[in-house]
Amino acid sequence: MTKKFTKDHEWVLVEGDIATVGVSDFAQSQLGDVVFVELPEAGRELEQGKEAAVVESVKAASDVYAPVSGTVIEANQALVDDPSMVNSAAETDGWFFKIQLKDASELDALMDEAAYKAFVEESH
């Protein structure tokens, strides 16, 4: 049960074949105050690297990509009701959606926490 990160600043936490997805704390700090999220509905098929959700601050709208492929089983309704949770709890209660994993090997290419930290430091 380790957390993995993408270069596009999503995190994914896998438990069994269920993956929970959100955006990184670094990403939320760059976005500023989040005012709106649009999450995928349950049942939608997501493909790794493709648009899955939208997160908006007042002056920017950003697409969130699926870090792994799979079927959406749940979206975080609490986040829709209170989008500021992206800012206050990006990597915990501010998760975006859960998916049923299709191909666990897709995780291999993602970074672990230490690698992601280094990546952020180097590129920003």
Binding site: V23, Q30, L31, G32, V58, K59
Partner: peptide, 10 residues
């Protein structure tokens, strides 16, 4: 995610 980090204080 794609990020526009020209977001400014609002």
């Amino acid at each position: 995610m794609s990020m526009n980090n020209q977001g400014r204080p609002s």
